[in-house]
Amino acid sequence: MTLTQAAITKTIDARGMACPGPLMSLIGAIRAGAVGDTVAVLSGDAGSKTDIPAWVAKAKHELVEVAPADGYSTFVVRKAH
């Protein structure tokens, strides 16, 4: 794991969920959180690789890190506003 040292406010294990499940879980957590919160979502869904960065860019949050692992990836997103 090469995750950043930044404290992760919340981790969501969405492995096993299909599109758009992991992204919806992430959006829910970002909405519920406070500005500056960092949410990590674990997703094994291949669609997440395009969908999560696309949503983060569009919603103007910050994609801190994408860490690929065996069979899934961890997406770390900071709530920017």
Partner: peptide
């Protein structure tokens, strides 16, 4: 293109 999800298509 590479496969993508619903959000990519929606955006």
């Amino acid at each position: 293109e590479e496969p993508a999800g619903a959000m990519t298509a929606m955006l």
